[in-house]
Simulated assay, not measured.
Amino acid sequence: MTDPGFRAMSVEEYLRTEEKSPVKREYAAGFVYPLHAQAGASRRHSAVAGHIFATLHPHARKQGCRLHLADMRLRMDEHNAFYYPDVMLVCDTETGSDLAETAPGLLVEILSPSTAQIDRVGKWAMYTALPSLQTYTDSA
């Protein structure tokens, strides 16, 4: 039996199957990575992300921005990738879709021992190349 986790697929197949998937999956360069393969969120991770979201929420609403907490995909066509940042702020009203944002101004990743290398190396390089991005932070 093959591992249902890390397998190659097209962007179209990823998007079609993500809707029906029982777990969130990230997509990078043709491969799908189930988020359950990484450590689940700890109480601390959840609290930090929640505090950041709660602090930003009233300001985002006042400015007409969209603020997402871990459940909205970030689509990066230039890197052939989709990720689920822990917190994402988007103030560009002309971009994105109901299924994925494309022009975040702020991205936050809460680090854990199992995700720190991926977040600090792979995702950092892709995130900081986004023309819209004004701030990226990772928090341990």
Rank of each mutant, 00 (worst) to 15 (best):
M1P: 10
T2R: 05
P4G: 14
P4N: 08
P4T: 06
F6E: 05
R7C: 12
M9I: 10
M9A: 01
E12L: 07
E13K: 08
E13Y: 06
E13L: 13
Y14E: 06
Y14G: 12
L15S: 13
R16A: 15
R16Y: 02
T17H: 02
E18M: 12
E18I: 11
E19S: 05
E19V: 14
E19P: 05
E19N: 09
S21N: 09
V23M: 07
K24F: 06
K24Q: 13
R25H: 11
E26G: 11
Y27K: 04
Y27V: 03
A28I: 12
G30I: 02
G30L: 09
Y33R: 09
Y33Q: 11
Y33W: 14
Y33A: 07
L35S: 02
L35G: 00
Q38G: 14
G40L: 14
G40F: 06
G40Q: 07
A41F: 09
A41D: 05
S42C: 14
S42V: 13
R44V: 10
H45M: 10
A47D: 15
A47E: 12
V48D: 03
V48T: 12
A49V: 10
G50L: 07
G50D: 07
I52T: 05
F53Y: 15
F53R: 09
A54R: 11
A54N: 13
L56S: 04
L56H: 08
H57R: 14
H57F: 08
P58F: 11
P58I: 08
H59D: 08
A60F: 04
R61V: 11
R61N: 15
K62L: 11
K62P: 03
Q63R: 07
G64F: 10
H68P: 00
L69V: 04
L69I: 13
L69N: 09
A70K: 03
A70M: 02
A70W: 01
A70V: 02
A70G: 01
D71G: 05
D71S: 05
M72H: 01
M72F: 03
R73S: 00
L74A: 01
L74R: 08
R75C: 01
M76R: 01
M76N: 04
M76I: 11
H79V: 03
A81K: 01
F82Q: 01
Y83P: 03
Y83G: 03
Y83Q: 01
P85A: 08
D86N: 14
V87C: 04
C91D: 03
C91K: 02
D92H: 05
E94L: 10
S97L: 02
S97A: 11
A100P: 00
A100Q: 00
E101D: 01
P104Q: 03
G105Y: 00
G105D: 06
L106N: 02
V108Q: 10
E109Q: 06
S112T: 12
S112A: 14
S112Y: 07
S112W: 11
S114M: 10
S114H: 06
T115W: 04
T115Q: 11
A116L: 07
Q117F: 07
Q117T: 13
I118D: 08
R120P: 08
R120M: 11
V121A: 14
K123R: 10
W124Q: 11
M126P: 04
M126A: 09
T128W: 08
P131Q: 03
S132I: 01
S132L: 01
S132T: 05
L133V: 12
Q134H: 13
Q134C: 14
T135Y: 01
D138V: 10
S139H: 06
S139M: 15
S139E: 12
S139G: 14
A140T: 08
